[in-house]
Design a protein around this nucleic acid. Structure first.
Lengths: 231, 231
DNA sequence: CACACTTTGTGCATGTCTTCACAAAGGGAT
DNA sequence: ATCCCTTTGTGAAGACATGCACAAAGTGTG
């Protein structure tokens, strides 16, 4: 049974697994041993049917009439996400953002480790940050290979992002997290995820403007009513 | 015609408009006057059919046989996103991340303006950053009202995020950008967008693990082949 | 052991998003 | 004015994601 199991997890589901994992860790800290899909769904801010379907893609880890064992589910999701191994991450660009990322404790905690820092500015090179010395960008290829880096975070100015991406890809990296506000051009097989402040603000502005329009009562009533029904 | 026009833009489309806008600004800087859907799609990293369908939701702003006028399209997208007006943004939490966000020039540029900074730490209050003095969190409600803040960025530690959200919502804010790694509980009508470093890294780790599994040749060949066909 | 109660896992219907493929529309040359 | 070339805008099909609603499977009590 379950032809959908054992590889073939929908992207939408993968994107929510970290959310579930965080909610579960919160429950575990409070000493909860088991949790129902309903309660976990509330904690993660999703619909319980969706949660159950998502979890069913990993396997059948719940007990009917009882719920899910918190520790066991944490383990299974961690394993599926690859967090039972250690990932060496490099941060390229030690400006304001790069420093913030390096200092951000949350991501060092589980599975990820800052194993290299790079900058092009020689006045920054050598500086120590979270116990790591900043290397010059010229050493990029060497250090990536020597320290077994497998994920690179780009926190450079926009103009530097593409050249940096080209170089890390040439060094064999296939997973990039990009904070620079540019579309990176990469070959097939390389995964890029993008985090973009101004995009998020613009999306918020769009919805905010909508709300304002609606309140100031445009005459197109039928349309406004239709919109009001979207939750 | 076009019943879908004049309000009713799909979320997926809204999320891509900032991308198009950035690509168009790049073209405009290089002096390009008109652009085809094909070229713009490449610059934005999407499929051209998708681009055309997205733009068609805003109206019919292209010219067949020619393409889109770059300046005109910039204006139309900006207007749709609400960037022709000025948005006063507050940043709550002036730690590493808050400072990075405040200093990040990219989002001040177009439509957004940092109009307030808050922190709970009295040793930070009063400090000046990008021309703004940091206010104490006790002044939150007052300052939000007085300065006409309409978007709040939460860059606090996880534990502080929910109480801050409750307070800004009580002050009438309905648009929040949350950098803290927690699910915010908010009433209907309030939009929350989330930016989460560790979630993104975990998604990358998942795919990275997959690639590694595939290379080290698990014996389940049919499945691997099927996967290899996803681009 | 039987029955009542809880909660999972999933088939199915519905809704949303993507992509293809082409008719319609404009520009420019002769 | 006609013809050819380019490119848009969109109908229709397919892929993907969501949510309902319920059978199946477990617990616990008497």
């Amino acid at each position: 049974m379950s032809q959908a199991r054992e590889r073939g997890i929908p992207d939408a589901t993968v994107a929510r697994l970290p959310l579930y994992l965080r909610a579960l860790n919160g429950l575990a800290e409070r000493g909860t041993a088991t949790v129902s899909s309903e309660d976990l769904a509330v904690a993660a801010g999703v619909n319980s049917a969706k949660l159950r379907k998502d979890l069913s893609h990993l396997g059948s880890y719940g007990t009917r009439g009882v719920g899910y064992d918190v520790q066991y589910l944490i383990y299974q999701i961690s394993r599926e996400l690859g967090l039972t191994q250690d990932w060496a991450v490099a941060i390229v660009g030690v400006g304001n953002l790069g420093r913030a990322l390096a200092n951000y404790g949350g991501f060092v905690s589980r599975g990820f480790r800052v194993a290299a820092l790079f900058d092009a500015d020689v006045s920054v090179v050598g500086e120590r940050l979270v116990g790591m010395a900043v290397d010059h960008i010229d050493e990029l290829e060497d250090v990536i290979r020597k320290r077994g880096i497998s994920i690179v975070v780009i926190a450079t100015p926009a103009a530097a992002a593409q050249p940096v991406a080209d170089r890390v890809i040439a060094s064999g990296i296939t997973s990039i997290l990009n904070f620079a506000p540019v579309v990176l051009n990469v070959p097939d097989g390389v995964d890029v995820r993008k985090v973009d402040l101004s995009t998020e603000l613009q999306i918020l502005a769009f919805h905010e403007q909508r709300k304002a329009d609606r309140e100031s009562g445009s005459p197109i009533m039928a349309e406004n009513l239709a919109e009001a029904m979207d939750a």
